[in-house]
Design a protein around this nucleic acid. Structure first.
Length: 546
RNA sequence: GCGCCCGUAGCUCAGCCGGAUAGAGCAACGGAUUUCUAAUCCGUGGGUCGGGUGUUCGAGUCACCCCGGGCGCGCCA
């Protein structure tokens, strides 16, 4: 780890710095400054850097040569990948994210896992990994006893046709309430569940209908969010594999019977010692631990995954720790990661709910974001035609919601605020999109097709600063996967947009004299491509006008 | 009781493997518009990094304890 070079903490220290001398001096018991001096003498970086300097207790600072930056920019102009290298060893990654439940509406809470997982998938793919996006839908479980009983006894067909999910939720809730008060209803619902699990044709048909209706609803959200899956293997997909999972684990001795249930104990792991995983209930039924073990099997054996990322809220940490531990005990060598995310809070700093205490439906949030964006467009740019305004409102509104989420560390509980994310100032999607729009405007006014110049000449501080920022894209993207932090990319893009806006104010492009004019055009064009590509990696679109 | 996560400026948040005088945005205040989209830019003020002890040349970052908030802990998912 010694010898890492990072972007300088402060511009006064140049562009890049390394603490390698400090680390090495510590290891060898030497004087860090003296060591740094020796390193600097032997270092040959004259092709890209001014002579490195030693500062402070032994930091080595580098300032990029202007010519080197100019050369790099000229290279990037014709580089499809904008300097981002592919990983040397591509992995096959199954990424599990989103995972909504059937017969329940998607709510704001689903934004995080969905948007985070999607961004990680896009970034991993761009870096050269083979990515399989899997929507592990909650389409099986005890709630279906209630849903089926409600369907048979309480269903309003017209309401179902109008608002399928709302009606499913209504019958579920009402059945639940009745069951709480009436033992007969409770028993009846349980009986429906048993029939379903036994393969009863009528109940299976009802179940299938609720699954289909729910998937249609999910698709509306995914279309708006521009999120797409390669496969959707719900929990039910694993049903016929569950008994063999339990048999296998019993045979291998990993599982044992305790109080009538089949359990796996983790006696050698202190934090799991008193928390066994149940893989078959006393009544013979399976639960989600069983199905998640079957899911690991499938992903590794059938899909050939060597890496599995599961993106869900933090409450499931214990569960997945056990699932991964079981997989390791079974001999699986895959790289398992549980990527957790925090909660979305309301203005009251508690879990975001409606006034009546319900979850806030996802589609309502997205619609409101679009609506609010539309109003701002109306105000700022009334001359655009209506369909254009609609398109732009969607790009900005959805982008704002996604960016508000992705620009923050995934574990942080964050306060959801339309006003902030759409205030269109500061670190928001519209701010970044606006930088892109300004660039596109220049390109349109130029009046001809952009063709990259052979050489680039940079003179003004603002353009050199912007150019250096553009070059850092190649460093920002791979960093995201170190600890699954898309906010690193988001923050980079914000800094890039900021540098561009400064450049835009300080440096006229079209009115500049040659050779500045073509160099600035090239720099602006390249910045636009990085913004577009970077935002795309976050799942965010850019408009041509706004 | 045990375990996990969080606590950084008035507000919302960055700060990845410990590294230089802790950074942004919003809000506040002061400037910039005959100029390619001002949804912008430039500037000013604002901090016992929840508290403490320890490890280290060096701690917002690591270890331990405490306080505060959230969540999870055998047959729901």
């Amino acid at each position: 780890m010694a010898g890492e070079v990072s972007v300088a903490a402060d511009p006064r220290f140049g562009d890049y710095q390394t603490n390698a001398a400090l680390v090495l001096a510590k290891q060898h018991g030497e004087n860090p400054r003296a060591l740094a001096d020796r390193i600097v003498k032997q270092l040959n970086v004259s092709d890209i850097s001014e002579p490195p300097t030693v500062a402070g207790v032994g930091f080595i600072n580098f300032t990029l040569k202007r010519e080197a930056v100019e050369k790099k920019i000229a290279e990037l102009l014709t580089d499809e990948r904008l300097g981002v290298e592919r990983v040397s060893q591509a992995k096959r990654i199954v990424i599990d994210f989103g995972s909504p439940n059937v017969a329940k509406p998607m709510h704001v809470g689903h934004i995080r896992s969905t948007v985070l997982g999607d961004a990680l998938a896009r970034i991993a793919q761009f870096l050269g990994h083979e990515v399989i996006r899997d929507n592990h839908i909650g389409d099986w479980g005890t709630q279906f006893g209630m849903v089926i009983w409600g369907w048979k006894n309480l269903l309003d067909r017209k309401a179902l046709a109008r608002e399928p999910i709302a009606e499913l939720v209504r019958i579920y809730k009402e059945t639940n309430e009745r069951a709480n008060q009436d033992q007969n209803v409770r028993d009846a619902a349980r009986a429906e569940l048993v029939k379903l699990q036994a393969g009863d044709a009528e109940n299976l048909s009802i179940w299938q209908q609720t699954v289909d209706l729910s998937k249609q609803e999910f698709e509306r959200a995914y279309a708006l969010l521009d999120v797409h899956y390669d496969i959707q293997r719900g929990e039910s997909f694993y049903n016929d594999r569950l008994s063999e999972v339990v048999d296998r684990l019993r045979k291998s001795g990993l599982a044992e019977i305790s109080e009538g249930a089949v359990c796996i104990f983790f006696r050698d792991i202190p934090e799991l010692r008193d928390k066994p995983a149940i893989i078959r209930k006393r009544d013979g039924g399976f639960n989600y631990t069983t199905s998640d073990i079957a899911t690991v099997d499938y992903r590794i054996r059938d899909l050939g995954a060597d890496t599995i990322w599961i993106v869900t809220g933090a409450p499931q940490q214990l569960h997945f720790k056990e699932i991964f531990e079981i997989a390791r005990r079974e001999g699986y060598r895959a790289d398992f990661r549980h990527i957790t995310n925090g909660n979305i809070l309301g203005e009251d700093r508690k879990l975001m709910k409606t006034r009546s205490g319900e979850n806030v439906p996802l589609l309502e949030v997205l619609d409101e974001a679009i609506e609010r964006a539309r109003k701002v467009i109306e105000e700022k740019n009334p001359d655009l035609d209506d369909s254009e305004k609609d398109t732009i409102a969607k790009i900005i509104g959805i982008g704002a919601v996604k960016y508000a989420d992705l620009s923050q560390y995934r574990m942080t509980d964050y306060v959801f605020s339309f006003d902030r994310m759409l205030s269109l100032q500061g670190n928001t999607a519209p701010y970044l999109q606006n930088a892109y729009v300004r660039i596109r405007s220049i390109m349109r006014r130029m009046g001809e097709k952009f063709s990259p110049p052979a050489a680039v000449r940079l003179t003004e501080p603002a353009e050199i600063q912007l150019a250096k920022k553009v070059c850092q894209f190649a460093e920002a993207v791979p960093q995201v996967l170190n600890d699954f932090r898309p906010n690193i990319l988001a923050n980079y893009l914000f800094e890039l947009a900021n540098s561009f806006h400064t450049f835009y104010e300080a440096c006229p492009v079209l009115r500049a004299e040659e050779p500045s004019r073509s160099s600035r055009l090239a720099l602006a064009n390249l910045t636009g491509r990085v913004l577009q590509r970077g935002l795309k990696l976050l799942g965010i679109d850019v408009p041509e006008k706004m």
